[in-house]
Simulated assay, not measured.
Amino acid sequence: MTPQDIDLDGRRFAGVTNSADGEVGHATVFTYRQDREVIWAEYGGGAVVRGYLVGTRAGEVLRFRYSHLGTDGQTSGGVCESTIEVTVDGRVRFHEAWTWESRPGSGTSVVEEIR
């Protein structure tokens, strides 16, 4: 199965790695939804109380904006571009490049499907 063939609807993901400026970690869980080229997700856990993302998909690339409430009581948001990879065992992995819009900082992260 190729990344373009993967339907993300209903799949759950967790953070694997993140840059120092990021707030998503191992305890952060994302539940993705997909309707053709439209994607969205709700997420939370770890440093994130509640978060949402919404955007589009073109083949193996996701482009979206995210917004969340941190455990510190601050709201934050930014933009992200993710590339889909299919692991050897058939799970989905996202390689992400993100930038905060609400504060200084940017980085990269990896988010992987939970089974």
Score class of each variant (00 low, 15 high):
C80A: 14
D72S: 12
G77V: 00
T83S: 07
A58E: 14
T56R: 14
R91T: 14
G55E: 07
H68T: 00
F64N: 05
L62P: 09
G59V: 13
D89Y: 10
R50E: 12
V49F: 06
S82F: 03
C80T: 09
T71D: 12
G59Y: 09
S67D: 00
V88H: 11
V86A: 09
V49R: 09
L53W: 03
G73M: 08
Q74S: 10
R50D: 07
G45S: 06
L69T: 01
G90Y: 12
G59P: 07
T71V: 10
S67I: 02
G73T: 01
S67T: 02
I84Y: 03
I84G: 09
E85I: 03
D72Y: 00
R57Y: 05
R63Q: 13
G46I: 03
T56A: 15
G78R: 03
E81Q: 11
Y66C: 05
L69D: 05
V88P: 08
T75S: 13
G51Y: 06
L62T: 06
L62C: 10
T87N: 14
L62A: 04
Q74L: 13
E81T: 11
G73I: 02
T71P: 02
D72C: 07
V54K: 14
E85S: 08
D89E: 15
E81F: 01
T56E: 11
R91D: 10
G73R: 05
E60H: 09
V88I: 11
V88R: 13
D72L: 02
G46Q: 01
I84L: 15
I84N: 07
V48I: 15
F64T: 02
V79T: 08
L69N: 03
T87H: 06
S67K: 01
S82Q: 06
H68S: 02
V61R: 15
R50S: 14
D89H: 11
C80H: 00
H68E: 06
R50T: 05
E60W: 03
A47G: 07
Q74A: 13
V79M: 05
E81G: 03
R57Q: 13
Y66F: 12
G45L: 05
G46R: 06
D72V: 08
A47N: 07
E60S: 15
A58F: 13
L69I: 02
A58C: 13
T75I: 12
E60A: 15
T87P: 08
E81V: 11
H68R: 00
T87Y: 02
G55N: 11
G90S: 09
